[in-house]
Simulated assay, not measured.
Amino acid sequence: MTPRTPQPAGHSLTVADAMDPFDYQIADDSTAEQADDALRGAHVDYMPVRGHDGRCEGLVTRAGLHPFLPLPGSTERIAVGATAHQQGPFAWPTLDLLLAARVMRIRRWVVWPVIDDDGYLLGILTATRAAGVIAAPPA
């Protein structure tokens, strides 16, 4: 956890103050089965989905993949991009953290991808981390 630095007067917390880097991504043309294997192998419950151009396309979760996993003996393969994964909007690092936390609460999101102006993944904002940074006493 990165220690919070004192903010200048008039400066509110932003998503950049609470986001964490995230090393894992899955391509949108990967199958649901491949995504499930990647999630299990990385020991994570969610993973950002990357499009052909490298930009963030959404977020896939283990629970969200479950209906798309092939049944035993089935040869049908469904691409992650065709699943009902969370697709935008995405957070920006300059977004006010209180607003981001409110949006996450309303949408019942526990995780929100953070992208740059070109749509590339910068990190992940979790509801737990946002709440912790908001609740932290000023340094």
Rank of each mutant, 00 (worst) to 15 (best):
L65N: 12
M19C: 05
H52Q: 06
P113F: 01
I124E: 02
L69Y: 08
A84N: 07
A100G: 12
V103A: 05
P138I: 07
P70Y: 15
I124Q: 02
R55N: 04
R77A: 14
A127Y: 05
H11N: 11
E57G: 01
G41W: 02
L69D: 12
G132T: 11
G51Y: 00
G73V: 10
I78K: 08
F68A: 11
D118Q: 12
D53Y: 03
W109V: 08
P113E: 01
A100C: 05
G132R: 13
F22S: 02
G81P: 10
A42I: 04
T61R: 12
D53K: 02
H66D: 07
V44I: 07
D23R: 14
G58W: 00
V110P: 04
D53H: 06
G81N: 12
A32W: 07
D117A: 11
A130M: 11
G123P: 03
M47H: 00
A38H: 06
S12V: 12
H85G: 14
D53P: 02
T61P: 12
V133C: 14
A18L: 12
D53N: 04
V80S: 13
D45V: 03
Y120C: 00
L122D: 09
L95I: 13
P21H: 08
D28R: 10
D29Y: 15
Y46K: 06
D45W: 01
H52W: 05
Y24V: 13
G73W: 04
T94P: 05
D36G: 13
P67C: 04
P67H: 05
V60I: 15
L125T: 01
R4A: 09
A101I: 02
R50G: 00
H85R: 14
S30L: 02
